[in-house]
């Protein structure tokens, strides 16, 4: 299967090939892989692809998952409007 055709992060359209190549070029954490490729940084906040991004790191580094969550969570866990955060329409 052509890994370039396989989209892992639907929000940012990041392919498996891009993730594997990045993880191999920069042996890194799931967080760094996310920041380098934008996988998991789209509108859904990584809810759909985070497990897959973790698996790419496991595959490349050979590390088995530990009790700590590999790809951390930050608030807000939903996309918000500036209005909700206190902004005002002019």
């Amino acid at each position: 299967m052509d890994a370039h055709q396989l989209i892992v992060c639907r929000c940012e359209e990041v392919s498996l090939a891009e993730l594997m190549e990045t993880a191999e070029a920069y042996p890194c954490s799931a967080r760094e892989l996310k920041l380098r490729t934008r996988a998991g940084m789209g509108c859904c906040g990584g809810r759909t692809c985070r497990v897959l991004v973790d698996q790419v790191i496991e595959k490349v580094t050979g590390q088995t998952p530990s009790h700590s969550v590999p790809l951390g969570y930050q608030p807000p866990v939903r996309p918000l409007s500036f209005q909700l955060m206190g902004g005002r329409n002019k």
């Binding site: 497990v51 009790h67 969570y73």
Partner: peptide, 24 residues
């Protein structure tokens, strides 16, 4: 299915990785 634990994570809960329960 996997447990949807994002709010527990930002609350600061310690986690366990348990494949038979679906993940973290």
């Amino acid at each position: 299915l996997s447990p949807l634990a994002e709010l527990a994570a930002i609350a600061g809960c310690p986690f366990a990785y348990v494949p038979s329960l679906g993940g973290h």
